[in-house]
Design a protein around this nucleic acid. Sequence first.
DNA 1: CTTAATCGGATATTTGATATCCGGATAACT
DNA 2: AGTTATCCGGATATCAAATATCCGATTAAG
Lengths: 162, 162
Amino acid sequence: MQLGKGVEWTTHICTVLALLPEDRGISVDALAEFFEVPSAYLSKQMQLLRRAGVVRSVRGKGGGYRLARGVDAITLLDIVTAIEGPMPAFRCTEIRQKGPCKLKRSDCKAPCEVAAAFAEAEQVYRDALSARTLASIMQEAAANATPEHLTDIAIWVQNQIA
Amino acid sequence: MQLGKGVEWTTHICTVLALLPEDRGISVDALAEFFEVPSAYLSKQMQLLRRAGVVRSVRGKGGGYRLARGVDAITLLDIVTAIEGPMPAFRCTEIRQKGPCKLKRSDCKAPCEVAAAFAEAEQVYRDALSARTLASIMQEAAANATPEHLTDIAIWVQNQIA
DNA sequence: CTTAATCGGATATTTGATATCCGGATAACT
DNA sequence: AGTTATCCGGATATCAAATATCCGATTAAG
């Protein structure tokens, strides 16, 4: 029951991309350096984000990644689904249709009660994730951070697009 | 982001153990046969349930597993925690302390806002799981099942303790 | 034409989940 | 006392997924 590292990486990265001016991008190498994560692997994660429509990419010299929409319109669920895929955590293998007391397929019109219970809990989890936008997280972070740290990051971002 | 098969197996098994008379147990081999799952591996999962206090075991001939308490006092969270462990799904590696704009340890008294947001969502998930007892699931299952199926299972359980 | 950058496929490495086996302990039954 | 059934724990094997790297193709800027 674990989320991949890509979820942590890309969430933090999105908070950095949010500081970019419109129509500017940052390269994967720069982002990887910013958090000291492996560049080639991060590239894969960013591609997943792109396919999910969370970020956009521009190829060629001067290209890079930027957010596809505003921080108010990007939720943690968007990122988790992009990286981890849409699969539910609980995998129902229909074991009620196995063994000496197995149910017939025809008696399984209703979903397995065990699977349904887990699915409901996961839906609550997803709802909680989709209630947290990038904007809300950045607001919290800005409130907790020192002014020096915020300017450090702003300067770094400016240097990337220079 | 996946739960192990043991979660599905043991949840279903608990609903079977709930049908046992007091002070009677069912062997791992019998339970494995009931759901057509590998006996040796299931044994490991049952040991996890036992260490978590969800079930009790009796060794030796005539021994086996039974629930440690009533179905009202066993939740899905008890089972998931027993099998999957207490670790959170989101793993914070403190990448805010990495790279050219890293934070000093002394500036990290407050938890990382990203990690905190995921932790909150997971808490909501756990709350949902702990709100579902074995009793409630068995009640739903009984309401949906045919009378024949319920008696099939009851007969099988009786045969095990005969 | 060179340089910088993403894209996608192929592949390697590492980790964790899944699964098996066996010797030891324990309890019931004969 | 001995046999059988059963859980317990450690060691180990197998398999799938996460993690990580590399490279050729593509694209765009200078």
